[in-house]
Simulated assay, not measured.
Amino acid sequence: MLWYQIVFLALIQGLTEFLPISSSAHLILPAQLFNWQDQGLAFDVAVHVGTLVAIVGYFRKDIANIILAWCVSLKDKKATPDSRLAWWICLATIPACIAGLLFDDFISTHLRSVEVIAYTTIGFGVLLWLSDRFGASDKTEQDFGFKSVLYIGFSQALALIPGTSRSGITMTAARFLGFGRESAARFSFLLSIPLILAAGGLKLVELVSSNVAVDWISILVGVILSALSAYFCIYLFLKWLNTIGFFPFFVYRLILGFALLLIVYI
């Protein structure tokens, strides 16, 4: 990869991983639109590590409290809001893991196209706007329950389809259920940690078993840039979310989706 491709893809991964606009689509599109060589497994691992570092670093206190409360609850058999949140995150992660194991090969073979990304970008963008426009905002993290968490978990499984956006679909589901923007976003971000860890781990196993040469300078640059851009993105998103809502992301998705359709059909 050339230096500008490394910088571009690392920044794209960091900036789009946690925004409701689909990081997978933005990583697939450059290779297809600009005829770039695929970035390869090693770089995929690098940018996943970078975004994991960013999300863990940003929510380090919350994560420490959740893990501690969960461990204490196992010992004392008493639930607390933080320990329940730990269980909700585990439960909501299961559907996406099962769907990934069952359908990853099919999705990789048949759904990684510009046309599919265009339609999912538009369709799920509309759902995001509808959930924010008409969804109530009277629930907080304390109101999560078995059914609502499972609903969000099943919606997260749809994010395996390129263009859907993992953060976008989970926030959409939470908003439709009546959770406020900040609660929906915070749960979505915390929910991303086990999946990013699992995806990065699987790619690392593939990388080790493939015996391919690794450009460690590219890897280091990818980790640093994706981590910094992701951290910056999380900070600004949570700071401005209640002010701007999801409408700007809906508009962006419409513009991107229709632009891609023009490329496909013209």
Rank of each mutant, 00 (worst) to 15 (best):
V45P: 10
H48T: 06
G50C: 14
T51K: 06
T51L: 11
T51Q: 10
V53F: 15
V53D: 10
I55H: 11
I55K: 08
I55F: 09
G57Q: 07
F59Y: 14
R60P: 02
K61T: 06
D62A: 11
D62F: 05
I63H: 01
I63P: 15
I63E: 02
I63V: 12
N65Y: 05
N65K: 15
N65L: 12
I67M: 04
I67C: 12
I67G: 05
L68F: 03
A69N: 00
W70P: 00
W70F: 13
W70I: 03
C71D: 02
C71E: 02
C71V: 14
C71K: 05
V72E: 09
V72P: 05
V72Q: 11
S73V: 06
S73A: 15
L74F: 14
L74T: 10
K75E: 06
K75T: 02
K77L: 13
K77I: 03
K78A: 03
P81S: 13
P81T: 09
D82H: 11
D82L: 04
S83C: 08
R84E: 07
R84A: 07
A86G: 15
W87M: 06
I89C: 09
C90W: 06
L91A: 08
T93K: 01
I94F: 09
I94P: 04
P95Y: 04
P95V: 05
A96R: 02
C97N: 02
C97E: 05
